[in-house]
């Protein structure tokens, strides 16, 4: 029993020492939270798909130390980002700044979406309305009108015809 207590005591001591090693040198939860947010916005240059917060690369550790020291010296988030951008370029920022070289990146998807909407609208406008008065065959009529080469009509005829013996699915 006594031996067990000693063992447990030793185990606890080891855990406590380990916890002490892992804990940061200072205890400022507000600063920690701020740095965590900031480091998630910054890219690790060694493992490029990880943020500074997530990366265990030695350079990421050094940069976290640098960021922490700048923050402790009273620098704002923007000043810290500027410090890193001056050394490593915009690449360190996961959120690239809006400038002439990044316009395509920022606005390209919107332009594509807009073009898509315009094209869709034009096609939809030109197509004969489905609720035309000629009943259940209106759909076929509309398709035939849209089908300049008659290819679609032929494809439909093929699909509608019963499978014959040459159909591999029937075998």
């Amino acid at each position: 029993m006594r031996r067990l207590a000693t063992t447990l005591g030793r185990a606890m001591l080891v855990v406590m020492m380990a916890a002490h090693v892992v804990a940061p040198a200072h205890a400022d939860p507000a600063l920690d939270a701020r740095l965590k947010l900031l480091e998630e916005e910054l890219r690790c240059l060694v493992c490029q798909n990880q943020s500074l917060a997530d990366s265990n690369a030695p350079l990421a550790e050094d940069l976290r130390r640098e960021v922490r020291e700048l923050a402790a010296a009273g620098k704002s988030d923007d000043e810290i980002k500027q410090f890193l951008v001056a050394r490593y370029g915009d690449f360190v920022l996961y959120r690239p700044p809006v400038k002439s070289t990044t316009w395509l990146l920022w606005f390209g998807p919107l332009v594509l979406l807009g073009t898509g909407i315009v094209v869709w609208w034009q096609i939809a406008r030109r197509r004969p309305r489905r609720d035309a008065p000629d009943g259940p065959n209106a759909d076929a009529g509309a398709n035939a009108a849209a089908d300049a080469d008659g290819g679609l009509a032929r494809a439909r005829a093929l699909l509608d015809s019963p499978p014959d013996s040459s159909d591999p699915r029937g075998a």
């Binding site: 240059l45 060694v46 030695p58 350079l59 050094d62 940069l63 640098e66 050394r87 490593y88 370029g89």
Partner: peptide
């Protein structure tokens, strides 16, 4: 030794 000059020069690899 601590890589600070490296950071100033933008060294990452």
């Amino acid at each position: 030794a601590d890589g600070r000059v490296g950071i100033d020069w933008g060294v990452y690899g």
